[in-house]
Amino acid sequence: MKKITIYSLAILLVFSFVVSCKKKVEEAPPPPPLEPVQEEQPVVEEQPVVEEVVEEPVVEEPVLTEEEIFLQKTLDEMNAEAPLQMIHFDFDKYFIRDDAKPFLEANAEWLQKFDAITILIEGHCDERGTEEYNLALGEKRAKSTLDYLESLGISADRIKIISHGKSQPIDLEHNEDSWQKNRRAQFKIIGK
């Protein structure tokens, strides 16, 4: 009898458990899905980038003048461009020839535009003079070039002169053409 009691109690217990379980299942809300946060990407709200629009003053790209561009260069770069044209002289002479005057006028104009530039005028001679006399003659050529530029309004304070005599020919031939090329006053920018 005792055995029957135990069995029946057990059955009852099981039954009651099943009933109670059934009840629970019905009553409980659906279990939250397992770790849904980890599997799903967080929802990012797609938003346009918003920036404040401010009316800024128009920045003018500094449009450099030709002058300013030139003045930014180094002296070597300037001289490589040779903005000042050399002039030539007659044999044994140092006066400014008529054909040299337009060049000097252009040079003076340029010097007026670039009024901070200082220059060196080098006087040169051809090989048909002695070393000693040519040094003096080259200086005369540089000086008369300076004087002419001064007469065109260029301050002599901006100009230095030097003579190289015949020591620096630009043409090494020995004929009238090359001699003419070598009898010259040439310009070098030495300050800005």
Binding site: L135, E139, K143, I161
Partner: peptide, 27 residues
């Protein structure tokens, strides 16, 4: 200053002569 050249010493050793264009651009 300027172009200075053609130096030469006197035989007695006291003086030096030379050319210069320093003052007027003329040797």
């Amino acid at each position: 200053e300027g172009t200075n050249f053609a130096p030469t010493f006197s035989f007695n050793g006291k003086k030096l002569a030379f050319c210069s264009t320093a003052e007027e651009g003329n040797s």
